[in-house]
């Protein structure tokens, strides 16, 4: 038990989140262990983004506790910075900095946050670009790349900070169908290397083959959690079943 405790990287305890009167998260509990791959799914508006944005405090939760690698997320700026250094994030809309080239996008945070040397940063950046198989685009502007390439750069940018865990918020939803697999392949590679991942996605094939745990959310609640085999083949809740029917019928 104490051994297990050590390996918990993300711990969400009884978290509520309100936007004004609207409750976006209702008593959410989630534990993610080192090396674990968690897929979060659920209908649009169910609070998936809100949950993972609370995990690196792009949103502040209203009550409950969130611990990252033992640090509790509070208003303390030092803690938030410490946490963000350990948590990488990949957005649906890439959010590359348009005024910086690909490699500058990768080198910015190491320069400012870790304050490592330029040569070191460049080496690291090239290494990460190689990891997402895009090293030949290093000197280009983001807008010159396809969506799939941009998203791979965004993943490489997150990797440069050497995070303990990476959050993905629908990383393939903004992509043309033919580009989805190049991004998923990179994510599968990361999973194989043992990266801890929390991934909001509706790519059920990816969930089935990669996830250790699938979490289903609806109306701000976690309705069901389980390993993919049980989750997909014998869901316990009616809501889950309905959701799976809708999403798999395509």
């Amino acid at each position: 038990m104490s051994d297990n405790q050590q390996d918990v990287i993300v711990q969400v305890e009884n978290v509520d989140k309100f936007f004004g009167d609207f409750q976006a998260l209702k008593a959410v509990n989630l534990t993610v262990a080192r090396g674990e791959r968690v897929v979060v799914c659920g209908p649009s508006g169910s609070g998936k983004s809100t949950l993972i944005r609370c995990i690196n405090r792009l949103e502040a939760h209203s009550s409950g506790r969130i611990l990252i690698n033992g640090h509790e997320l509070t208003d303390d700026v030092k803690d938030i910075d410490a946490v963000r250094r350990e948590v990488g994030m990949v957005f649906q809309s890439f959010n590359l900095f348009p005024h910086l080239t690909v490699i500058e996008n990768l080198m910015l945070a190491p320069k400012l946050v870790r304050k490592t040397s330029k040569t070191e940063n460049r080496e690291l950046a090239m290494e990460m670009l190689a990891r997402v198989k895009i090293q030949d685009q290093a000197e280009k502007w983001p807008s010159a790349l396809s969506g799939g390439q941009q998203q791979r750069v965004a993943i490489a940018r997150a990797l440069c900070m050497n995070p303990e865990v990476i959050l993905f918020d629908e990383p393939t939803s903004a992509l043309d169908p033919e580009m989805i697999s190049e991004v998923l392949d990179v994510m599968i590679d990361l999973a194989k290397e043992g990266m801890t991942m929390i991934c909001v996605t509706h790519e059920m094939g990816f969930a089935r083959s990669v996830a250790d745990k699938v979490v289903f959310m609806d109306q701000g609640e976690i309705v069901e959690t389980g390993p993919p085999a049980t989750f997909f083949d014998s869901p316990k809740s009616d809501r889950t079943r309905l959701f799976l029917q809708q999403i798999l019928s395509h």
């Binding site: 690196n56 792009l58 700026v77 910075d81 963000r84 250094r85 948590v87 990488g88 994030m89 957005f91 809309s93 959010n95 590359l96 900095f97 348009p98 910015l108 945070a109 400012l112 946050v113 965004a154 940018r157 997150a158 900070m161």
Partner: peptide, 21 residues
């Protein structure tokens, strides 16, 4: 674009760094 600001925050840039860079 608020996404860019969030990306900078998520990478661990401070408020001031996000503002400047």
């Amino acid at each position: 674009d608020s996404g860019q600001i969030e990306a900078a925050r998520a990478l661990g840039l401070s408020n001031l760094q996000t503002f400047i860079y």
